[in-house]
Design a binder for these strands. Sequence first.
DNA 1: AATTGTTACGAAAACGGTTTCGTGTTAATA
DNA 2: TATTAACACGAAACCGTTTTCGTAACAATT
Lengths: 340, 340
Amino acid sequence: MKPKITLKDIARELDVSISTVSKALKNSAEISKDTKDKIKAFAKFYNYRPNNIALSLKNKRTKNIGVIIPDIVHHFFTTVFRGIEKYANEKGYNVIVCISDESIEKEVINMEMLANGSIDGFILSLSAETQLKNEFTHLKELLDQGIPIVLFDRVTSEIECDKVVLNDEEIAREAVGHFIKSGAKKIALVTTENYFNVSESRRIGYLDALKVQNIKVDENLILTLSHDMENDMLITEFFQNNKVDAVLCVNEIFAIQCMSIIQELGFNVPNDISIIGFTDGILSRFSVPRLSTVAQHGELMGETAAKLLIDRMERLNEVEEPYKTKVINATLIKRGSSIN
Amino acid sequence: MKPKITLKDIARELDVSISTVSKALKNSAEISKDTKDKIKAFAKFYNYRPNNIALSLKNKRTKNIGVIIPDIVHHFFTTVFRGIEKYANEKGYNVIVCISDESIEKEVINMEMLANGSIDGFILSLSAETQLKNEFTHLKELLDQGIPIVLFDRVTSEIECDKVVLNDEEIAREAVGHFIKSGAKKIALVTTENYFNVSESRRIGYLDALKVQNIKVDENLILTLSHDMENDMLITEFFQNNKVDAVLCVNEIFAIQCMSIIQELGFNVPNDISIIGFTDGILSRFSVPRLSTVAQHGELMGETAAKLLIDRMERLNEVEEPYKTKVINATLIKRGSSIN
DNA sequence: AATTGTTACGAAAACGGTTTCGTGTTAATA
DNA sequence: TATTAACACGAAACCGTTTTCGTAACAATT
């Protein structure tokens, strides 16, 4: 076993001072060529690498980013994370991930844990509970301490910080417009409780598109499902009791569940009922027929969030930039589950 | 903006020494009750929290774990990660994730980056390229430096360290046995290049099960696909050219692709051809019919790996424990794609 | 010979904690 | 009254860096 070597070790062995070693390794003009060569050779031989922790303490920056996401086993968040990791890594940052599990308590604990020096900034998507309770003091306090935060996807207007969001409203409008253009009249929405900002936006887009086309909104055609429950019965009843031409689902699972039940009920997709889901994940690509979806470009979203954060962190001393909200444009991917 | 407060700040304000503050906050018997109360109240009021970086430097341990995985957008790795994060968090550790992207270079760079003080130990699954090239000096060097490593799933016998693996061979045998019991004779295997230890083990299990039942191995019934290519043509030809009763696929995607193509070719699943896949992910649960799979219990695997690592790290000074390899027992989940 | 300027290096502070050890003050004991 | 013990606190070292500033040694200038 050969443990890591420090500046002190090199200094002792070569009979010079620690400062000389440090300067030599940074190629300082203060040190003579002979001494520099000697020190560099020694350092190289023993594979010297500066200790990150000591550097962090000295520089008051860790080059770590904290990422808090509600759930990692979820295609969208996973792709966002990949975008964050990729960009951060290119810029020399590491990523510490915590999973809030949709709980505000975990969100708070994890953030406070990391905020005590472990990271230079946060990227997060709010937990369901945080959105439900509308409780953001933990975020405000961190911002107050000067720790930059970037919110993505599940954001809130209560907090002033950089944000990255999808054009949910617009893309929902576009999806419904697509249904209408193909002749659908009875268009359903399958969504979650609307304390989620994204569901709310998608609902608005849905309603908007109907209004524009003078289609009367039928509240019965809006099915609200919960995240964690078994929804099969509700979905079955919904499609038994309502004549529907098309259905927009706010996530991939709902869309696949709907498609499966619709088919079991004897309807044809897309001829009897068209379906469009959100999140262009693996399920959508391998279903039969393939699912038309809204691609959220998670990876781009992650990269954008990381760039926003790193730009702000590396500009900390200069003039304060105003906060930005970047909008990622979703893409409607038309596949077999809707009529072209 | 109110920046973080330090011991020094408290000491200055309260006109005591830094050591007194430190001791008071740790409730040391050395300090009088009066002084302690005063200091605690002040610290609480200003929300004092010790700086993690300073603690890390002092204690020579970061309470961070480095996790290196080949790919995060992959159900199995994601669940393992969740297990790691969950257990680590309970024990007060944070998790720094790097994605190797199946590249040995990234694996090396990331590990060296983190090894310079940022983490206390690693949990990783080898990249494809690392397995292909059989190149492990980076791991050996880190172990040499006294940094503990736990390998999971994609492991190698070249490295001595704690490991967590699936009983791949056995479960493949069981799956094939299940096929045979239901009357299948022509049993195919759809797998990846066998430099992956897991594919290799599954292949051995497959061959073994056939041998035990005196079924002659037909090399034509083993289809080797690559990870990144479009395999649809190969799969189609395979099922056109070979009479097959059942097929075992080493991952979920292959299984779904096979099922889809098999159905397109006019066969019935499971009556004409049974299918079992690996990885009990979301695809398997929502396909029609639902896919019989080998559940790899990723979360348990992650927890086990994290426990192994943390146990070793927290036992560092005591006697060296011999390295362990924990085997996670996979479960064969029988659903609609195979005959019971 | 005295002054000035380089060169090449070392001492020390700082980052924010913990911990060992030393010490002044008071009270208890002989 | 002198010694000892207990109490309550502070000084300083240490973790591994970076960086400012001071300075010894020598050369060059007047």
